[in-house]
Write a protein that binds this DNA or RNA. Structure first.
Length: 503
RNA sequence: GCGGGCGUAGCUCAAUUGGUAGAGCGCCAGCCUUCCAAGCUGGCUGUUGUGGGUUCGAGUCCCAUCGCCCGCUCCA
């Protein structure tokens, strides 16, 4: 990472605080790691992103419906999904074959005579002795004979996967690949339902919104006169007790997701996977993420999660590195099958036309709302040069948001605070607000200063009422990025901005 | 989780060997301004992240804790 990009992130964080986009949570108490608050400008930006998503994936389509599930669900949901089992024991994963083991059940066994290593394998067992036996028994006959021949001089090293000595890595019992260090995953936030804090009342804050959709799949199917292929969309908070929150809001412990579960016939899963992957990628570009910083990266086969048949990440080149904004996965029928098994409820869809009964496959485009917000902030941050009142070029900081995302769409100024200009400007401002545009009125200080303040907020248009306005009812409207001004009728300001938003 | 750095006004930073905290910008009020921040006048701002300790005295030294940044690690 170059010095410049590090600077960029620092400047962006400073601007976010200075202008009221993002604050650290509970800052007056010293903050809390992994939690962030959106200020007056930030909340508008984030809402605009969520609104754009909802409009584009739900309202504009006939094959999509929305949902808003509770954050706390019956804990059995998380047993079915695999979240409880997978994250309560210390676990190791094979970096090569992706197998997962309980760390206290996997040993690495090494037999060596001096520098000469005769045996170096992983073994599944309950204790060291059994691990050594298992490793010996699993060896081929030639190796076994050599071990017996050198028995007296052999030095055995056996260690459990969660107690590996510094610098030693564990070996996968299945493929011989390298295992990760042991990790105790307890990523789900635990809480208690009701007044009694005992084991029967344990519940979890959802680590993803997806399971609420799967749990309601039958309800939606039964009530909406809808049939596959169709999707259910949801925006909502999720919680993960991340070991190490990092990179501003990128990895937070409380975050908001925008998720779609799209249900289709298994034979059409590949088609819909490709469709959503491309559709979602295009969405970010359309809202202003330059394609050269955005990339679509298909997962390698060995990178896939156990439930996924195919997956692609939509990644953005942040100042701190290329990181994932959204994942689009073919989750097959894994989740519905799991819920059928754990709940005992039939998850099949019966097709009246073909008389076919099947559990749909699911394509899941799962986006991080805060991550998208951060990407749009990074993309918007620009430093350029603009002339001051003497024509000397000065540095300018400007947030070049897509107008659809900009927290404030329009600022209205009187050029000077006299000759009736404030009244005319306030009138335009009020008219804009009545039309539903986020508008800001400012009459204080020099007009140049007011323009620059709006640049930092990312306001795409500034309207100024001047002397000529009083003669012919026209105003200047200034473009944030080009600094160019058009002169238009005051009565047409609202329409002008609305046209720009529709582009 | 490990290692390193850091924490002083809203922001960026100052404060000699420990001697009762200061500047610029911003912000607010007013003036001046007929179009792109640094014209004028005046004004506000801090339990120096928090809690202990050493000391006659701590922003400065010690301990703990919280948070932020960087690198590793991690990210079903």
């Amino acid at each position: 990472m170059s010095e410049n990009t590090g600077d960029l992130m620092e400047k962006l964080v400073a601007l976010c605080k200075r202008r009221g986009f993002i604050f650290q949570s509970s800052e007056i108490y010293g903050g809390i790691n992994g939690f962030w608050d959106y200020g007056p400008l930030g909340v508008e930006l984030k809402r605009n992103i969520k609104d754009a998503w909802w409009r584009d994936v739900v309202l504009r389509r006939d094959d999509m419906v929305g949902l808003d599930c509770s954050i706390i669900m019956n804990p059995k949901v998380w047993e079915a999904s695999g979240h409880v089992v997978n994250f309560n024991d210390p676990l190791v994963d094979c970096k090569k074959c992706k197998a997962r083991f309980r760390a206290d059940k996997v040993f690495t066994v090494i037999a060596a005579e001096g520098e000469n290593v005769l045996l170096s394998v992983g073994a599944e067992a309950d204790d060291e002795e059994h691990a050594r036996l298992a490793a010996t028994n699993a060896a081929n006959s030639k190796t076994r004979r050599r071990l017996e021949d050198h028995a007296q001089k052999l030095v055995w090293t056996v260690f459990r996967a969660d107690k590996a000595p510094q610098g030693r890595s564990n070996i996968c019992p299945l493929c011989g690949g390298e295992l990760t260090d042991a990790r105790k995953f307890n990523m789900m936030f635990k809480t208690f339902v009701g007044a009694m804090e005992d084991s029967s009342s344990v519940a979890y804050l959802r680590p993803e919104t997806a399971q609420g959709i799967f749990a309601n799949y039958k309800n939606v199917l039964d009530t909406q006169r809808i049939r596959p292929p169709f999707g259910i969309a949801q925006i909502g908070k999720s919680f993960r007790n991340e070991i190490n929150p990092r990179n501003f809001t990128f990895r937070s412990r409380e975050f908001e997701q925008m998720e779609i579960e799209f249900f289709c016939h298994p034979s059409e899963a590949d088609k819909w996977y490709a469709y959503w992957r491309d559709e979602r990628y295009k969405w970010y570009i359309d809202l202003g993420l330059k394609s050269d910083k955005l990339r679509l990266r298909p997962h390698e086969t060995d990178e896939l999660a156990h439930y996924a048949r195919a997956c692609a990440d939509i990644e953005y080149s942040f100042p701190f590195g290329v990181s994932e904004l959204e994942g689009v996965a073919n989750r097959t029928d894994f989740d519905l099958t799991q819920h059928q098994k754990f709940s005992g409820k039939d998850m099949n869809f019966f097709d009246d036309e073909t008389k076919e009964r099947y559990i749909p496959y699911v394509i899941e485009p799962s986006g991080g709302c805060d991550r998208a917000t951060l990407a749009f902030l990074c993309e918007a941050y620009t430093e350029d040069m603009a002339p001051d009142e003497k024509g000397v070029m000065q540095a300018r900081t400007v947030m070049k948001f897509h107008p659809r995302l900009a927290p404030v769409k329009l600022a209205v100024f009187p050029l000077v605070k006299k000759e009736g200009m404030p009244e005319v400007a306030a009138g335009i401002h009020n008219e804009a607000k009545k039309a539903g545009l986020a508008s800001f009125y400012d009459e204080k200080g020099a007009v140049g200063r007011r323009y620059r303040r709006q640049d930092e907020a990312g306001t795409p248009f500034c309207v100024t009422v001047d002397g000529q306005t009083l003669q012919d009812q026209t105003v200047t409207i200034r473009d944030r990025d080009s600094l160019k001004q058009d002169r238009i009728a005051a009565a047409k300001v609202v329409q002008y901005v609305q046209d720009a938003l529709a582009k």
